[in-house]
Design a protein around this nucleic acid. Structure first.
Length: 193
DNA sequence: CTCTCGATTATCT
DNA sequence: GATAATCGAGAGC
């Protein structure tokens, strides 16, 4: 089994960490799969929650790397981020999609509440879906990524990665800081060629 | 396939 | 009071 990702893995530029997360495995209480899509948010980026400075919501982003930053999206969904870089840098990677490999029955159960027929490719193909499927909520905000309930494993080999502009934002819409596993059918949306 | 719209609430102005 | 790093349903082509 590939080694756990250590705290030091996250203690680097968010633009280096983000693409290296593609292919890594994320489990929460044993439920999860292979990360296939992420986005990088740096504190100098107008689209980042930390751009306006420290607030109650984004406080975790201003702490040390290797912790989870969870926030409520559109009043309905949860979104999971990994804090990167040195404390105070306030940068993070948004986890946008995973390919389910572990605990699929549990994911189907949790997602099935709001979906009549939860197809496997619809279980975790988006930041809100993925949090619902693996059971991430605000309770996970500020938890260390190298300890339970989180389990992060490095990828075994370097996959083909596609890059493009980020999704669903209204500022800095052209910055190419979305990364995906090439050819994956578990992406939230296809990458344009 | 694409497009539009409503849900729902913490956060910030 | 307006906004938002989303999602799913439904309409139309």
């Amino acid at each position: 089994m590939p080694p756990r990702l250590r705290r030091s893995f996250f203690d680097r530029s968010v633009h280096k960490v983000a693409p290296e997360l593609i292919g890594a495995t994320l489990l929460v209480d044993g439920v999860g799969g292979v990360i296939v899509e992420v986005e990088a948010y740096h504190h100098t980026d107008p689209a980042a929650h930390s751009y306006i400075g420290r607030t109650n919501r984004n406080a975790i982003m201003f702490g040390p790397a290797g912790y989870a930053y969870v926030y409520r999206s559109y009043g309905i969904h949860w979104c999971l981020n990994f804090v990167c870089e040195a404390a105070g840098s306030a940068s993070a990677v948004l986890i946008r999609a995973i390919e389910p490999t572990a605990g699929i029955a549990a994911m189907r159960r949790r997602r099935g509440k709001d979906l009549a027929l939860p197809e496997e490719r619809a279980l975790c193909s988006g930041p809100g879906k993925l949090c619902q499927a693996v059971g991430v909520t605000i309770k996970h905000n500020g938890l260390a990524l190298d300890r339970p309930p989180f389990e992060l494993r490095a990828r075994a080999s370097v996959p083909d990665i596609v890059v493009g502009p980020r999704i669903g934002i209204t500022k800095a819409v052209d910055a190419p800081w979305r990364y995906g596993l090439a050819g994956s059918k578990f992406l939230s949306k296809p990458f344009k060629i």
